[in-house]
């Protein structure tokens, strides 16, 4: 949020111009690589990515909970808490993945 990034530096008119230019270039086949921002998106690929994001956050949450449990001697409690937090983090990852970068900011 802080610091000028590219979209805020351009005015509204210029972004409108960019959009029209992009359409015109795409129409003439000058931009063969007009790909989405988050990499190649097939429905299968997105599904795999979503599943992976979910599972990896769960793994990290479980690992942190397990480690803290072993360290603090609170055997099952923190593992459960951090597994739940891991599920939340995984869902957050999936939401960010599907919303894309522009809406996320």
């Amino acid at each position: 949020m802080s610091g000028p990034d590219q979209s805020s530096r351009d005015g509204k008119n210029s972004s409108d111009f960019e959009a029209r230019l992009e359409r015109a270039r795409a129409g003439r086949g000058l931009d063969p690589l007009s790909r989405p921002a988050e990499g190649p998106v097939g429905s299968w690929g997105t599904g795999m990515r979503a599943g992976l994001e979910l599972v990896s956050a769960l793994l990290v949450g479980g690992a942190i909970g397990w480690g803290l449990d072993a360290w603090l001697g609170t055997k099952p409690i923190l593992l459960g808490v951090f597994l739940l937090l891991g599920v939340c983090a995984g869902l957050l990852n999936v939401v960010r993945l599907t919303l894309g970068r522009e809406k996320r900011r």
């Binding site: 956050a57 793994l59 983090a89």
Partner: peptide
């Protein structure tokens, strides 16, 4: 609640990037 979730989400990049 949010800070631990964000930290887990940040750390999960390591797993998802390598496992993919």
């Amino acid at each position: 609640l949010v800070v631990p979730i964000e930290i887990i989400s940040y750390l999960s990049r390591l797993i998802s990037l390598s496992v993919r």
